[in-house]
Design a binder for these strands. Structure first.
Lengths: 178, 178
DNA sequence: GTCGAATCACTGCCTAAGCAGACACTGTCG
DNA sequence: CGACAGTGTCTGCTTAGGCAGTGATTCGAC
């Protein structure tokens, strides 16, 4: 039996991590998006580019799981980036179902050029945090994401309420349209 | 000049709080949604109901700022909940522009009945955390949300890239903060 | 080797989110 | 009183996200 973090009698939305994560993410996105938009990117596009830059994803499938994006939606994001010559698609020879992705020279340059503005905005937004606090937050979030990834397909613990749905979480989400 | 949390040369997407927040939120939502879906709610609807239950919002406008939701979108969420007789709209007598919201008896009962399942799922998902860790995470996120709320309208720091950066984004609604 | 299941990328469709504008109402200033 | 700015809610439009289904390919069982 896991730790009894929350209890029915004292559960309040505003103290719940779920709510706090949603809220902070949204707020931080609001801080970053204008900087990215000035450069012509959405947050999603940015993260895709960064992951490619960091070599964290070689194909769309990996990117999907990494970013937790819908594969269909991701296709459209890649479409946009490819249309702007920032990303190149290339069919793998080893497995011809797979499409390998990489930044073009222009994409590489664009990302590198954009980083300072993003970093600056991030630092500004986090101005009220000490280094120790940010470190702690990052550590906790990293641990949390690892934990939740481990849970994977939420095998719904036999809820007495019966029907519990079983979503095939594998396919990521997000994406965009042209 | 704020703390130099991130630096251009070492910035990596996967370590960035923005990315981590997005990722953890998405993962946690995946954990909770099936439980809510079994009860017929989306995450958004659930949070709306919880806020009404906790008396955190008396009208749509407050709810918008609390949840960082679009007022137009919120109208539709309320529509759905009202159609299911979970929420009641009532025009305020004091200020007839305002629509006061409250749970119906059925709404109240439904929310209360749903809490145990949500709490259980939340505890399950957070099983790997100690009480101290969750407490720390909650505290940091609460502080962060307060910090970011303070920043409010992100005044874009003059980007040397010239172009753009002039989104009137701040969408008037949700403006007044306590 | 063949058949069937699994995987990868992609396309359509549907719903939700975000934006802008409309309308109703309030409070203020002249 | 009447014009005007500000606020609260709601309605259309556009865009993005998520799901299901398709074609191509690979892998595994037999």
């Amino acid at each position: 039996m896991p730790t009894q973090h929350y209890r029915t009698e004292t559960y309040l939305a505003r103290n719940s991590v779920g709510y706090l994560l949603k809220r902070t993410h949204s707020q931080l996105a609001d801080q970053l998006e204008p900087a990215l938009e000035a450069l012509g990117f959405t947050f999603t596009q940015w993260v895709v580019l960064m992951h490619l830059r960091d070599g964290l994803a070689l194909n769309a499938s990996v990117l999907c799981t990494q970013l937790r994006h819908d594969s269909g939606a991701l296709t459209r994001v890649i479409d946009q980036l490819e249309a702007r010559d920032l990303v190149r698609r290339e069919r793998s020879r080893k497995d011809r179902r797979e499409v390998q992705l990489q930044l073009t020279a222009a994409g590489q340059a664009t990302v590198e050029a954009a980083i300072p503005a993003v970093v600056e905005r991030l630092n500004f937004a986090l101005g009220g945090f000490s280094a120790a606090e940010l470190e702690a937050l990052t550590r906790l979030l990293t641990k949390l994401t690892g934990m939740l990834e481990g849970l994977g397909a939420h095998q719904v613990a036999a809820t007495p309420h019966g029907d519990a749905a079983d979503r095939p979480r594998e396919a990521g989400r997000s994406g965009s349209r042209s």
